[in-house]
C-alpha cells in the first residue's frame, strides 16, 4: 500500500483504538456482574491487541515463519493458565470435579 493510503489507514486505526480504549474504561462504570465485566474488558483488549499486531505491525506482509513464531507464545500462555489455575485455586477444583 503506498504512503497516502497508509497514512490515513493509520489515522483510522488510531481512532478506532482510542475509541475502544475509552469504551473499555466506560464498561467498568456500568457495574455489570463480575464475570461479564471482566470478559467484556478482556474481549476489547484482545481485539485491540489483534488490531495492533495485524495492522500496525503489518503482519499481513510477513512470511509463514513469523506466524509460527508468534502463535507459539500465545499457545504457551494458554497452557500456563489452563494448567496453573486448577492446581492452586480452590474454587476451580469443585468446578473440575464434575469432569473427573
Amino acid at each position: 500500500m503506498n504512503s497516502t493510503t497508509a497514512s490515513n489507514n493509520h489515522t483510522m486505526i488510531f481512532s478506532v483504538l482510542v475509541v475502544m480504549a475509552l469504551s473499555a474504561v466506560g464498561v467498568t462504570f456500568l457495574h455489570l456482574p463480575i464475570v461479564t465485566n471482566n470478559v467484556a474488558i478482556f474481549a476489547i483488549a484482545f481485539v485491540m491487541a489483534g488490531l495492533v499486531f495485524f495492522q500496525y505491525m503489518d503482519l499481513k506482509s510477513e512470511g509463514k515463519l513469523i506466524y509460527w513464531i508468534m502463535i507459539i507464545p500465545f499457545i504457551l500462555f494458554g497452557i500456563l493458565l489452563v494448567l496453573f489455575i486448577p492446581d492452586v485455586c480452590h474454587f476451580s477444583i469443585n468446578f473440575l470435579r464434575r469432569f473427573f
Binding site: A21, A24, L32, N37, N38, I44
Partner: peptide
C-alpha cells in the same frame, strides 16, 4: 500491546 493487556488487568477488573 503489553500495556493494552496490563491496563485492564490492573485497573478495570471488577
Amino acid at each position: 500491546v503489553v500495556w493494552i493487556f496490563l491496563f485492564p488487568m490492573l485497573y478495570l477488573l471488577a
